[in-house]
Amino acid sequence: MPRDTFADLPDEALLVLYANGDPDAARLLAHRLVPRLVGYAARMLSDRSEAEDIAQEAMLRLWKLAPEWRQGEAKVSTWVYRVAGNLCTDRLRARRRRSVSALDDVAEPESGAQPAVAGLIEADRMAALDAALAALPERQREAVVLRHIEGLSNPEIAEILQIGVEAVESLTARGKRALATALSGQRAALGYEEAD
């Protein structure tokens, strides 16, 4: 199939073409999915390097699954987002375990919303957003990033997080409120109003 006709194909069709040995399908699928996965994982982990590892691992699992992919059961993008989300959760848990053991040695205050935002005086807007996101509970962060930055619909997010649509709405609403509160003291630093 000529490559220019691939652009109109859905992800699922590209995955089938890949499984059938088409050399161009994987390249196009990777260009569609990898940037989204990197963005999502980077917002979840606040770490670009780890985000790239997550994106590579999620794509690796997709390539492995390709021959057994059953069409109509899930969207490819939803599936890789779910894998990436689970991988991010694993990494965040590992971080927490490490930080707990570090806290045993060094008496530092437990990280929370305020300390994460407090050190952002010189940060730019995206860094402020990332820091505020990092202070959210994991599920809220996932829902807010997927809804408001990745632009997915609530039903898609529900499928990724494997919860109901109402629960997604609740998570995003609570997440947004928490973000607004965390960033409210940063308006001047964010450039949205002049400092008094």
Binding site: Y18, D22, A30, M59
Partner: peptide, 13 residues
């Protein structure tokens, strides 16, 4: 990612 895909791609029948 592309290298992974090529390494894991099933051979065309």
């Amino acid at each position: 990612v592309i290298a992974d895909a090529e390494a894991l791609q099933p051979r065309p029948v």
